[in-house]
Simulated assay, not measured.
Amino acid sequence: METDKLYYKNQYEVEFEAVVRKSEQDNAGHYVVLNQTAFYPTGGGQPYDTGTLNNIRVFNVEEVEGEIRHYVEMPIELNVKCIGEVDWNRRFDHMQQHTGQHILSAAFDNELGLKTVSFHLGKEICSIDLATDHVTEEELLKIEEIANQVILENYPIESKWVTEEELRNYSLRKSVSVSENIRLVIIPDFDYNGCGGTHPDSTGQVSTIKLLHSEKQKQLVRVFFISGKRVRKQLQEKHQVIQRLTALLSVPQEQMEEATSRILLQGKELEKTISDLKTKLTEYEANQLIEQGEQNNSNIMVKHIYQNRPISELQNLARMISQKTSNIVVLFINETDNKLQLVCARGNDLEMSMNQLVKQILPIINGRGGGSDTIAQGGGEKLIPTERLMEEMVSEILS
């Protein structure tokens, strides 16, 4: 197939001439089909190429129903001659990552007998899923060493088209998924694999491979890695972060972990201290409110209006007051910029229901809420003055 041969075999071809044979639109946008192309469509775990056709941006390339659709920012007329240009930086990055995957997959298979189940070429990081539930750190370091030795020795990378019958002449890492137009990518004496992706001419052009980390994925292990220019980019980014952290922590890089652990421990201790102090402040506030409470027959009523107080704090305060005094009723209202919130609680000796109280009051402010017989809360719109809402709550208690 002429189109396939162009973008597979001339993978260093970034500029080409073509003619528009189809110009239509689908759900993904306007697209054109060319008589030949150097653009690689999404496939085999490798993303599509981008670039331009007559200086019109190509933002996606997909193979749909046997045709390669170039999605463009604006329509191009039928039979127009085009100068196509592939974004080489993106293409070469994909070549490095994809070949890095071939090398790693072969190393895992050859050294540990672990098969690669899937491959993902991400914008920043790549990953492969291995058919195992455990890989040690020592094994990962060994595979990384083997992969970079393959790069250092600069093996040639060959690609060839073969028939189904010719496959028996090669020791393939995995079976191919097609029976026609079979393309093999070969690193002699190391990896033989059916693949339609783009790859450089030699392993040395991958430059380097770095395994980042691994994680368990159900019955698989996912290994994250980067190749080529991405290694330098990540190194630079991480170095800049470390430089900023060394300045912030005032420690050299080798002491950063210890310093960070110390700061985290201090933070936890401070959080506990703050929590204890908040509890003491709440208890002090609760005692003050109880002392200021209004006597009503043999019961005590505590009522207070707050401004922009966290509702969780008012719930804790109301609960503490009701636990300290068994014959007490607590009525709190919190006023914010656009709503009114209320918290109601009672001591254990009283038989009234706080849940019933808030459900009777909340319709006045078009509110919602609820709770239990001992404590309830809710909120609604500022339809009446706050003082009026408090009067309604007191009246309901006394009725």
Rank of each mutant, 00 (worst) to 15 (best):
K5Q: 15
Y7N: 04
K9C: 02
Y12V: 00
E13P: 00
E13W: 04
V14P: 01
F16Q: 05
A18L: 03
V20W: 11
N27R: 11
Q36A: 10
T37F: 01
F39E: 03
P41Y: 08
G43M: 12
L53F: 07
N54H: 12
M74W: 10
P75R: 11
P75E: 12
V80F: 03
K81W: 07
N89S: 09
R90Y: 04
M95C: 01
H98T: 05
H98Q: 06
H98D: 07
L104T: 02
L104W: 01
S105L: 04
A107F: 08
N110Q: 15
E111Q: 15
G113K: 05
S118T: 15
S118G: 09
L130V: 00
A131E: 14
H134I: 09
E137H: 11
E137T: 13
E139F: 09
K142W: 00
V150S: 03
N154E: 13
P156A: 08
K160L: 15
W161P: 10
T163V: 02
R173S: 07
K174M: 02
K174D: 02
V176A: 05
L184I: 01
V185P: 05
V185D: 04
F190C: 11
F190N: 09
N193C: 13
H199S: 05
L211T: 05
S214V: 07
S214G: 05
E215R: 13
K216D: 10
E237N: 13
K238D: 13
V241T: 15
Q243R: 05
V251T: 07
Q253M: 08
Q253W: 01
E254D: 12
E257W: 12
S261L: 14
G267C: 09
K272N: 13
S275E: 14
D276F: 07
K278V: 09
K280N: 02
E283T: 08
L289H: 09
I290D: 08
N296Y: 15
N296I: 11
V302E: 03
I305R: 06
I305L: 13
Q307C: 07
P310A: 09
E313T: 10
L314C: 06
N316R: 13
K324S: 04
S326C: 04
I328C: 12
V330R: 04
F332E: 06
N334Y: 08
K339S: 14
Q341V: 05
Q341A: 14
A345S: 12
E351L: 03
M352Y: 10
M354E: 08
Q356G: 01
K359P: 00
L362A: 07
P363F: 07
G367A: 11
G370R: 09
S372M: 00
K382V: 03
L383R: 07
M390P: 00
V394M: 12
I397D: 04
L398D: 11
